[in-house]
Design a protein around this nucleic acid. Structure first.
Lengths: 212, 212
DNA sequence: TAGATTGTTAATCGATTAACAATC
DNA sequence: TAGATTGTTAATCGATTAACAATC
């Protein structure tokens, strides 16, 4: 199996997103330098990234947008699709549902979990909220192997352990602790405070306000 | 001025966070291999990263935790502190406030903006919500140079233009469009769907379920 | 054909890793 | 001192960039 860097995966997903938007603008084809500009990359970088997916552009017309989207999807998405569980239906959980539900049928949120009796049984963005007590059962029933953690730090590790034991292989972690997981489990951490501090520093850095 | 990579900045912020937690465990000193384990890095990588900040460890005791935190902060934080504006007080905006307010006095959310009259004038996590119409005035008054965008895609570019014109140099963008900004402005994009798709792919990749 | 673009190879750059002298 | 750790230099690795032949 060939290797691919995390950042290349991230970029391919970005290209697909940008291409989907281009689909609605009328043009059938796009050149690497147009896509590069949209993505904030160089044309050569884009062409190199695209060589991961089995699709060749035309030297005259560039890339057929719809075909390229299809090729990227064949590369990135699971052929059978993947189910996603969201744990924690607070403000963040609701926002995540709002930003993700319905966008990619191959990466589909199939269940929400919470421990609050008021929330259990409600439906948000079309997804039912289950009792976190039934986590293992529902994950098995709904064939879920990806999870999003949007609960406070205290319970996060316990939930992660249960998710992994139930068959989850990828975790998007919005809690502010770092999870301890086996090495075959992928964890993507999204720490909001860390992102804010990074933005504050790099803003000054870009404006030459940092001296060291 | 020396150069530093975005990822090194991101790691230094992580180290500081992990060290702050260690502060409460009783030990005064920590070795690079302990910090490395917490951060998921190698000891040599940690030592190399730490050489950006002007602080030397002891060859016998390792790094004095409190001193190292101070040195990282002197490196990362602005001496005068930076004000932050949050634009959009929906579920996501409320979650962001919840995850960031009060954690770092040098990166301080000083104002929230929304266009909803019901929200304007309310106080969340101690921060007043202002009319987005008064954006420029408040940003100037409260000496803000960092902003978080947590509004739907449609209005995001217009808001970004106004923020930049008002003096913002760093933007943490949670909307799902890419912002067009001058090259001296730093934008950190946080696309939830992209993060989810990446997690789904890399989960399978880590488990050798991806063939290409 | 001429010209613009693509895919691929070679050169460069930077980050990571390994090795080691210096320190207490 | 012996031993463990640090800071720094050298070697390796990988990604980015530049160059260019192939294509229509």
């Amino acid at each position: 199996m060939k290797k691919i860097s995390h950042s290349a995966v991230h970029r391919l997903i970005l290209y697909r997103k940008l291409l989907k938007i281009q689909l609605h603008t009328g043009d059938d084809y796009i050149y690497s330098h147009n896509l590069a500009q949209l993505a904030g990359r160089t044309p050569a970088q884009v062409r190199r990234d695209l060589m991961y997916v089995a699709y060749s552009g035309s030297t005259v017309r560039g890339y057929h947008i719809a075909e390229l989207v299809k090729s990227i999807s064949m590369f990135i998405d699971s052929p059978t699709g993947q189910g996603v569980a969201l744990v924690g239906l607070g403000n963040l959980g609701k926002a995540i549902l709002n930003y993700t539900v319905g966008l990619n049928p191959k990466v589909e949120v199939r269940a929400v979990f919470d421990k609050d009796p008021v929330k259990i049984g409600t439906i948000t963005e079309g997804i039912t909220c289950f009792d976190v007590h039934d986590l293992e059962k529902i994950i098995d029933e709904k064939n879920i192997n990806v999870a999003i953690i949007s609960i406070p730090s205290e319970g996060a590790q316990t939930i992660a352990d249960r998710l992994i034991a139930a068959g989850v292989i990828g975790i998007l972690n919005y809690s502010s602790i770092r999870l301890n997981v086996p090495e075959n489990i992928y964890v993507e951490n999204r720490d909001m405070m860390r992102a804010l501090e990074k933005t504050a520093f790099l803003g000054r850095y870009f404006n030459n306000q940092v001296i060291f």
